[in-house]
């Protein structure tokens, strides 16, 4: 299990990296944290001729607050999600979900951008990006475009990125101070990719009526699952157990998962519903707490 030969570049600026991507096109691959790409290289399941290592581009590692949004540079390590105060205060869901990604050693290297572009069907960050309508800032030597998360993920391990393109930033909306959130998942073993996971953000008004529900599920389709109709179920409603049961049933019904070594499609459907209910309940409780803190 040794990686095949490749040519190696470690540019220090985004522009240099983009030039290399343009020059080598399909033959090149970006190397970010390496926590998904290097295993593939070691198994010789990926064999790019050129690796463009972007670890030396200092400009891609940042967390910034821009009026109401949180901009995270693609090379920001997953570990920063756990430690950054700005992230905790503006989008605590990212902080809480970070510890679900692998292990400390993985998060020390693995990046936010790498996780999104790798587009594993059970990546936590992909679920959050989809649930929160994150915006992906993409650059090539030709220019820049922004793609919404809902359009970014195409299928298993595939995004809209062209070979000459690089994800440079992801922008998450800041969560309302009164919002509550949760990420619930089922794993076989601690730190593994989830079998099924559900993330949700619940916003309540002063009367504890739900004004907004965001919900995305992973492990149930090729890309994170989100459904406006399901999210609408709680709109303007007090959250009750029977309403949640109905919602859970809808989730189970609507998702279209697969059977693999570790779980059956039926089991995944069931779990998606159960975890949705559990996550919403947890998020609701957190939202109520936040409401109390506010008043």
């Amino acid at each position: 299990m040794k990686p095949p030969k490749f040519d190696y570049f470690d540019p220090t600026t985004v522009e240099e990296a983009l030039d290399l991507l343009k020059e080598y096109g399909e033959d090149a691959k970006i190397l970010a944290g390496g926590q998904s790409l290097v295993p593939l290289l070691n198994f010789r399941l990926a064999r790019p001729q050129v690796l463009v290592d972007i670890n030396r581009i200092k400009d891609l590692d940042y967390v910034r607050e821009n009026n109401g949004t949180l901009a995270i540079g693609a090379m920001t390590r997953q570990r920063t999600l756990e430690t950054s105060e700005i992230i905790r205060s503006k989008c605590g869901l990212l902080t809480d979900a970070a510890e679900l990604i692998g292990h400390p050693q993985i998060r020390n290297r693995g990046t936010v951008g790498g996780s999104l572009v790798h587009a594993d069907p059970t990546a936590e960050l992909a679920a959050i990006a989809k649930a929160l309508d994150a915006q992906m800032k993409i650059r090539s030597s030709e220019g820049e475009r922004t793609v919404a998360a809902k359009d970014f993920f195409v299928t298993v391990m595939t995004t809209v990125l062209e070979p000459s393109e690089m994800l440079v930033e992801v922008e998450f909306p800041a969560l309302a101070p009164s919002a509550g959130w949760a990420f619930e998942e089922f794993v076989l073993r601690h730190g593994d990719f989830a079998v099924v996971g559900v993330t949700t953000v619940v916003t309540l008004d002063a009367k504890q009526t739900c004004t907004e529900l965001r919900l995305a599920a992973i492990g149930v389709d090729e890309t994170p699952f989100r459904d406006p109709e399901i999210e609408g179920l709680l709109q303007g409603q007090k959250i009750t157990d029977s309403l949640l049961d109905e919602l859970a049933a809808r989730v189970s019904e609507k998702v279209d998962p697969f059977t693999d070594l570790h779980a059956t499609a039926e089991q995944r459907k069931h779990l998606a519903g159960v975890l949705a209910k559990k996550a919403i309940k947890k998020a609701e409780e957190a939202a109520i707490l936040n409401l109390k803190k506010e008043s």
Binding site: M1, Q35, V38, P39, N42, R79, P104, Q105, R109
Partner: peptide, 24 residues
């Protein structure tokens, strides 16, 4: 394992643990 799971290859790089099998 050379695929990042067993942790036997863990070293500290600039003070942080990393998998030395997942780095060049």
């Amino acid at each position: 394992c050379e695929h990042g799971i067993c942790g036997a290859c863990t070293v500290l790089m600039n003070g942080y643990t990393v998998r030395s099998c997942l780095m060049f």
